[in-house]
């Protein structure tokens, strides 16, 4: 599996566009800046909804109407983050795919997507009973807490990707090498 990921990353790395983005100071930084600044639209709004569910913010605003109304701008933010995230990966595919932090981030993104789906389903099923209550029911509050916690760790992993602590380029413990997907004898990083 790690060999397959490495081969695909190496193939992406060989494409002209990958090199073009990677070597363009302004293009790469613009993409990264857009990725980070869209946090305000995606994560900022998501956290507002989560905090409302937990009763920490906006107590007088209907929770379900808030979630419904903010859904579209939040999704726009996540789409932009997703596209810019793919471009950032595409610009540095080999190192990114072998980053332990990147891999943890991807797993957590899947967990957050499943959590968001379950949260939304539970909310639409039960909204008529608690819409104007200061706090959402226990199940939804758990979902909101998971969302807040995991998204914070996702941002943290995103920051950690920039550091080279567990890069395959340097000697690493066997477990780190396995988790990061380092290939024996690889010369390309």
């Amino acid at each position: 599996m790690n060999q397959l990921i490495f081969d695909m990353a190496a193939w992406l790395d060989d494409t002209a566009w990958s090199t073009a983005i990677h070597e363009s100071y302004y293009l790469y930084n613009w993409i990264e800046a857009t990725h980070v600044l869209t946090l305000m639209l995606s994560l900022g709004i998501l956290f507002l909804i989560d905090m409302r569910m937990l009763g920490w913010a906006l107590p007088n605003v209907s929770a379900t109407r808030l979630a419904e109304r903010l859904n579209t701008p939040m999704l726009i933010g996540f789409v932009v983050m997703f596209i810019t995230g793919i471009l950032l990966f595409y610009a540095v595919p080999v190192r990114s795919s072998q980053s332990l932090w990147f891999r943890i981030k991807m797993v957590l993104l899947v967990v957050c997507a499943v959590n968001a789906y379950l949260f939304h389903r539970r909310m639409t099923q039960s909204m008529s009973t608690w819409e104007n209550a200061p706090r959402a029911p226990s199940e939804l509050r758990k979902g909101a807490l998971i969302s807040l916690g995991f998204w914070t760790v996702i941002v943290l992993c995103g920051r950690f990707i920039a550091y080279d602590w567990y890069d395959c380029e340097y000697p690493q413990p066997d477990m780190v090498r396995a988790l990061a997907g380092c290939i024996d004898g690889q010369t390309r990083f």
Binding site: L37, M40, I45, V155, R159
Partner: peptide, 24 residues
């Protein structure tokens, strides 16, 4: 570096929340 990056992440998350509040 880990402490610095963790605080950076806190800075980013709080900036995101600030931005969310402003945009909302």
């Amino acid at each position: 570096g880990g402490a610095f990056a963790t605080i950076q992440a806190g800075h980013l998350v709080s900036l995101g929340v600030l931005g969310g509040a402003v945009l909302f």
